[in-house]
Design a protein around this nucleic acid. Sequence first.
DNA 1: GTCTATATGTTGATAGAC
DNA 2: GTCTATCAACATATAGAC
Lengths: 215, 215
Amino acid sequence: MPNTGQGRRGSYAKGVAKREEILTRALDVIAREGYRGASVKELAAAVGLSQAGLLHYFDSKEELFTEILRKRDEIDTSAFGDLDALPADVNGVRAGYLQVIRHNSEVPGVVELFSRLSVEAADPQHPAHRFFVERNAALRTVFARVLQQAQDAGRITDAIDPDTLARIVQAVADGLQLQWMLEPDVDMARTVDALFRALGDRQASADAREDDDHD
Amino acid sequence: MPNTGQGRRGSYAKGVAKREEILTRALDVIAREGYRGASVKELAAAVGLSQAGLLHYFDSKEELFTEILRKRDEIDTSAFGDLDALPADVNGVRAGYLQVIRHNSEVPGVVELFSRLSVEAADPQHPAHRFFVERNAALRTVFARVLQQAQDAGRITDAIDPDTLARIVQAVADGLQLQWMLEPDVDMARTVDALFRALGDRQASADAREDDDHD
DNA sequence: GTCTATATGTTGATAGAC
DNA sequence: GTCTATCAACATATAGAC
């Protein structure tokens, strides 16, 4: 069982390191070259292994792809900061989230992998199911917290509860990815920002006006 | 070339009728039994044909699935009314759209087919690409028109333009489908309705409060 | 118009040598 | 740990009989 994820007792330290390296490189390849129906064989070649060699580290293709997305989140977190650890301020979270979205606009292959797996993970038996459920919930928790604060401060609408508001923000981001894959002209970050503005965030409005001037 | 879609010169009248019947039955099967990685062979059996017999009417699997979705829209339109032909009133459009969403909640297989194809259609060469692009644009046009009216009447926020607002509404609906497939407890219709409320539609708020009482 | 049979191409997974 | 070789399991598309 080579795929423990965490090295039990440290004995698989090297195997784990290699596994992490594989994931990083696979993610990089998808980011640079796109996701063109990527088969295990193609990915293997891209990371310099045979298909069997790559599958030595993962139980299945589905697990491999799930772990690639996990690595993506890990890298995004270290690059743009952990939304969860940020000062629980709506503008901090908003800015961090927009950074991630802007970055996504430059890696269509990763977005496609994400969306594709997200649909396939509908099946509770799919290895990515738990990943998506937990990821979505965690993200919404962060949103809900800062949105509630903003509501308490009277800065955004309190017509609906913060949990629903958080779900809406997440749905917009996911839905925009679908629209953007179909029509790359769609500006995901600007549209999410517009949503914040529509909800009544005065600071978001001000920032957006600044962005308009600078673009 | 059996798949003209419209019977040229009427000579394929019977073939076209059969084709329509196939699509209706295929849609019905997916609605009732779900989309379980449906292959052409499975669908063929479900509609009472061999795989080759079914593909006699369509160029490819992708075209078949695209046409199934087209038929879905056709049926929804005749069942719930044509959003485009409705009185251009925000509450009429909103109510009609919510009806469609509530119906979707009862046909997970159709939603899965839609989402799956939506991702695959990212490729401009995909037979469904044009379908999705045009469908999305048409829907947004309807939304944008009534949203602008609502803005003019001071009933919803005018912090952002109607086109962006329309895009947001569409993104929420699409994104909620992804969330709902992962977690069927998600109430898509109520959340979309909440969005309208958050945007400041007073009538939506009143209706929603009524709904709460009645549930 | 529909079927059977098949061509042809994948894919992911595994066994076993080194 | 990595490879070669091979596998079974499909898929879609097509040819040709009826």
